[in-house]
Design a protein around this nucleic acid. Structure first.
Length: 685
RNA sequence: UGCCCGGUGGUGUAAUUGGUAACACAGAAGUUUUUGGUACUUCCAUUUCUGGUUCGAGUCCAGGCCGGGUAACCA
């Protein structure tokens, strides 16, 4: 998997190999500072920064700040912070507004070349004249003289004309099949204060007019963007060509979609403004700020993007892939602690009242050289309510009346009694402990039903724990009406948990695992004496309550198998498969003798087989029959060998042709053998 | 509707550019385990359809079907 790359990387590698752009590579991430970054942006960020890194090249952050009415420094600062948090850095923050002067010069150049004009048509009129499916019509102002256009444009720039009075347009082709080339607008009059250039400009460039030239001016070689800009590429190229500046190569890829997620700025804004979440950094939000607060490590986000890949197909990634990468990072980085979310009192009846001791617990069990801590133990403990069952189902591996379980890191306890309230709800579980089992193991090494987590009632800390669920169903866009009607009303549950005292001084941002429960991050709302945890993600749960523990195997719906495969040739699905009889003549089939056979490293289905055809030369063939034939059973045997195949590499081994085999009734491969006794090297017909 | 772009398992990406459909996630089964976690093993695909070219097609050609983008004085 390491040796295949996506189409963007391939295209760039080809350009480098061809010496295009002088063999240079430079990318950029060009957000508009009008909102917060979300997981979809993370994809674009990683692609641009990682590709640059792979080529030892620069990737700049450049703000596409061409519309002062929508943009602000607050957004810009948040964006910079998020990208740095993701682990990327860049030499200098750039702005499209840095190029306003240059763009102005470019416009004059275009006007002088007769390729731009000032249009006094209204927005509606321009839209109408642009036409729909068929081509449009020329604007009545299209044939103004260069001098008049120049004068008018200077008036626009000087603020002498009113907003909306006119625009500067390129003069391309109103009948062009691509509507983007039907005299696109370059500048509109906007008397707004820009967050960087102040009141210097009364006109602001449109995206198309600013983007390509900005790329070109700062030396970008590959302008990577999302699919919806595909139709803009001809315009991007046209501008650079007309202005006689280097034309960077724009390559488009699909943006990220994820199940249970709404990614558009508009919807995210509605969630915030409608009070459906607590803010842009609400841990349920797919924003970088939200994911960070939730406890998702930056490393996991980067890995996620790597695993998602880059393509042009409009896909939707399963949210569970994100959870997987988060768990993977957290599993090896988050220290373990004990805590219960739904406390149920457990009394160790044979433990002396008022006494206490402590047990050593590992911070990273299974990892040598990591720390330990002491966890206090006493007569009264808290366990999680779902670790006890009065009437345990089959396969239950936790506590139940009469059962013995291990308290993690502590000892073995046996349930002797249950206390209930008037409604029948269990309020206390009584156990006895085995003092010989201190540390969790006994001399007789007896097996117990399972291991559960606990915390000493007297020593436990209260913690506010926020449990999160998806904001939306799997496919929020499917269904009638407003998507907000599909908001999950239970996306946030707050509980008061009991956690071990070592968490008292945990700092905001700390990530930990509550053993057997999940991964958590200390929320910035925490204060001394007030611990607030966000559940980042649950542990993968192998326990399926609904499932019978020992499913009657064999039949059932899972294997709608016994569909007999047609006995078509297996291993070489190519040439020998279903050939007309006479076509056999074209195949160079030979009898060959196996001289050597050995497994191919790193491929558990492949064998590397050395063949001899009596011509003194040895041929090597790689065949996927390892599951059915041992190397020993093959050596010395005659096989049918297809000699006139183009050699190809399999797992790093050059395979010269293939050995013929057929599918057996179970789908296994059966090697074909010459029917009659033939000498090695003989042609099979 | 015009133009543009796509279509490989439940999901996402591969396939040395025409030569065993691979990797990961999810799901299922099992082994190990002081976390029902981790680790490990196994299973899970008529490559959208129909024709064509070819010894050989996921890959090339033609047509169909389906999906997405776009038609701003937004980016």
């Amino acid at each position: 998997m390491a040796d295949s790359t996506d189409f963007v990387r391939q295209a760039i590698a080809e350009d480098v190999a061809a010496g295009r752009f002088g063999g240079r590579v430079q990318t950029r991430f060009p957000p508009e500072p009008n909102g917060y970054l979300h997981i979809g942006h993370v994809k674009a960020i990683c692609i641009n920064f990682e590709i640059a890194k792979e080529h030892g090249a620069v990737c700049n952050l450049r703000f596409d700040d061409t519309n002062p009415t929508k943009e602000s420094v607050e957004y810009a600062n948040a964006i910079e912070h998020d990208i740095r948090w993701l682990g990327y850095d860049w030499p200098k923050t750039l702005y499209a507004s840095d190029y306003f002067e240059a763009l102005h010069g470019f416009a004059i150049k275009l006007i002088k070349a007769g390729k731009a004009f000032v249009d006094h048509s209204s927005a509606e009129e321009i839209s109408r004249l642009r036409g729909r499916e068929r081509g449009g019509e020329d604007s009545p102002y299209r044939n103004r003289s260069v001098e008049e256009n120049l004068a008018l444009f200077e008036k626009m720039c000087a603020g002498e004309l009113a907003e909306g009075e006119c625009v500067l347009r390129a003069k391309i082709d109103m009948r062009h099949p691509n509507p983007n080339l039907r005299d696109p607008t370059l500048y509109r009059i906007m008397k707004a204060t820009h967050h960087r250039t102040g009141d210097r400009w009364k006109v602001y460039p449109m995206y198309d007019w600013a983007h390509g030239q900005s790329d070109s001016l700062e030396g970008v070689t590959h302008s990577l963007c999302s699919l919806e800009f595909e139709d803009h590429r001809p315009l991007y190229n046209w501008f650079c060509e007309q202005l006689e500046i280097e034309t960077p190569r724009q390559i488009e890829f699909a943006r990220l979609n994820m199940t249970h997620c709404l990614m558009s700025k508009r919807h995210l804004l509605r969630l915030v403004e409608g009070g459906h979440v607590k803010g842009w950094d609400d841990p349920r939000m797919p924003t970088v700020a939200g994911l960070r607060r939730r406890g998702y490590p930056a490393e996991a986000l980067r890995d996620f993007v790597k695993r998602v890949g880059v393509a042009k197909y409009n896909s939707t990634v399963d949210h569970r892939l994100l959870e997987f990468v988060v768990r993977e990072v957290l599993n090896r980085t988050a220290t373990r602690r004990l805590g219960v979310l739904d406390p149920l009192k457990l009394v160790v009846t044979n433990y002396p009242e008022g006494e206490e001791e402590s047990f050593e617990a590992q911070d990273m069990p299974g990892v040598d050289g990591t720390g330990t801590r002491q966890v206090p133990f006493a007569r009264e403990l808290w366990i999680d309510r779902d670790c006890f069952a009065e009437d345990p189902p089959k396969g239950w591996k936790r506590l139940a009346p009469g059962w013995e379980v291990r308290l993690r890191y502590a000892c073995l306890v046996t349930c002797t009694d249950v206390v209930k309230d008037a409604s029948g709800k269990v309020t206390e579980v009584h156990c006895t402990w085995d003092p010989e089992s201190r540390g969790g193991a006994t001399a007789d090494n007896r097996k117990v039903k399972g291991t559960i987590h606990w915390v000493s009632a007297k020593h436990a800390l209260d913690a506010e724990v926020r449990l999160y669920d998806h904001l939306f169903p799997e496919s929020p866009d499917e269904g009638e009406g407003d998507v907000l009607e599909r908001l999950n009303p239970n996306s946030l549950t707050v509980v008061t948990a009991k956690v071990e005292p070592s968490l008292a001084a945990a700092e905001a941002g700390t990530r930990l695992q509550l053993e057997r429960v999940g991964y958590f991050a200390v929320d910035p709302d925490s204060a001394p004496g007030k611990l607030v945890l966000n559940r980042t993600v649950t542990l993968k749960d192998g326990y399926k309550p609904g499932k019978p523990p020992a499913p009657p195997k064999g039949q059932g719906k899972q294997k709608q198998k016994p569909k007999p495969k047609p006995a078509k040739p297996a291993a070489p699905t190519g040439p020998a498969a279903e050939l007309a009889f006479e076509q056999f003549a074209a195949l160079d089939l030979r009898v060959a003798r196996v001289k050597t056979a050995e497994p191919v490293e790193g491929a558990d289905r492949l064998l590397k087989i050395g063949l001899e055809l009596a011509d003194g030369e040895q041929r090597t063939v790689v065949s996927g029959i390892r599951a059915y034939y041992s190397p020993e059973a093959l050596v010395g045997r005659q096989v049918v060998y297809l000699a006139n195949l183009k050699p190809r590499k399999l797992r790093g081994v050059l395979s010269q042709g293939m050995i013929l085999a057929a599918n057996g009734p179970e789908g296994e491969a059966i090697l074909l053998e010459p029917e009659r006794a033939l000498p090695d090297g003989a042609k099979v017909t």
